[in-house]
């Protein structure tokens, strides 16, 4: 299609019906609130922001915060002072102090502390540095990357310290991809964390350049007429039906506000821009396969985001 205005109108209307006709029932997993949340910090200027995020998470889940100081090479007294300072910032939240770890690598310390505490959720800083061109891959910090690469639980990365960060939890933005198995988990964890009072937003991004490249790699010729923005958005909408339906059913059952958006552009850029501009909590599905392109994309989004990012 896409030859005449009538074809375009038909294509647009059909894409919606296709979404309904092709929708497969998706059961969102039931999320048990974690009893313990590991809160890692590193005496940086992000400690306050980590405390705000940890307070939100622990309060919303009714969980105990397990405090772990990730910086190596501190004497016991200094370490105790920092932990007590963090505990004071979390006044009102049940706290435990993680036993000291011997590891040199902060990432090992965090993961070992998590294992020792049996924490099913992580909160840790991932520095947000604006000069991304120069910093490249280091911009979220190597510790955050290594923890992400090895963790098996959701991680909330605290990025730029910002005013009113707690407000982000009231407006989560979940970025989904239609063929990502972790998408349902990301939705469910976002719903469980942010609760029914939040204004949920679900975002799908159509990356035309990536699609063309993938098609070329597979040896498929792409008809440029079919790559109009509207046609791409229509097709994305048709393909996303199952996830949209699952999200809307949850929202309906819990009387929550949920809005679905489809955008076109470079996936990481659009996602990060939408999240940063809107001051959202960004929820991202993160594939278990750390060599996959989806994992690389998720990491790039994390690097570009200045808002807290929850990787599921």
């Amino acid at each position: 299609m896409s030859n005449t205005p009538l074809d375009d109108d038909l294509h647009e209307a059909m894409s919606r019906f296709k979404a309904a006709a092709q929708a497969q029932p998706i059961e969102l997993p039931k999320i048990e609130p974690p009893a313990k949340v590991l809160v890692a910090f590193d005496q940086s200027n992000q400690d306050d922001a980590v405390a705000v995020a940890a307070r939100e998470v622990c309060t919303r889940f009714g969980a105990t915060a397990v405090l772990a100081l990730a910086s190596p090479g501190l004497d016991i007294e200094t370490r105790r002072k920092h932990l007590e300072a963090m505990q004071a910032k979390l006044a009102g939240v049940s706290c435990e102090i993680s036993p000291p770890q011997d590891d040199e690598d902060p990432a090992d310390r965090i993961l070992d502390a998590q294992q020792a505490a049996g924490a099913k959720f992580l909160v840790l800083p991932a520095p947000y540095l604006e000069n991304l061109d120069k910093l490249g891959r280091d911009s979220v910090g190597s510790t955050a990357e290594r923890v992400l690469a090895r963790a098996t639980t959701p991680i909330l990365f605290v990025r730029e310290p910002r005013e009113g960060m707690a407000g982000c939890f009231g407006k989560p933005l979940t970025k989904l991809h239609v063929r990502q198995p972790e998408a349902a988990d990301a939705l469910a964890v976002g719903f469980a964390l942010c609760g029914t009072a939040a204004q949920f937003r679900v975002l799908f991004v159509v990356d035309a350049a990536a699609m063309t490249e993938a098609a070329a790699l597979l040896g498929h010729e792409v008809d440029p007429a079919k790559l109009t923005d509207q046609a791409l958005l229509d097709d994305a909408q048709a393909a996303a039906g199952s996830l949209v339906a699952a999200a809307q059913h949850w929202a309906s059952d819990h009387k929550a506000a949920l809005k679905v958006d489809f955008k076109i552009g470079s996936d990481p850029d659009v996602t990060a821009r939408e999240a940063n501009d809107g001051g959202h909590l960004l929820v991202l599905p993160c594939p278990a396969d750390r060599n996959s392109s989806a994992y690389s994309r998720a990491l790039t989004v994390l690097r570009l985001s200045s808002v807290p990012v929850l990787m599921v």
Partner: peptide, 14 residues
């Protein structure tokens, strides 16, 4: 019966 009409709704309030 498996068709899901909610798959097309972007925003319930709207």
């Amino acid at each position: 019966a498996g068709f899901d009409e909610w798959a097309m709704v972007k925003d319930r309030r709207v």
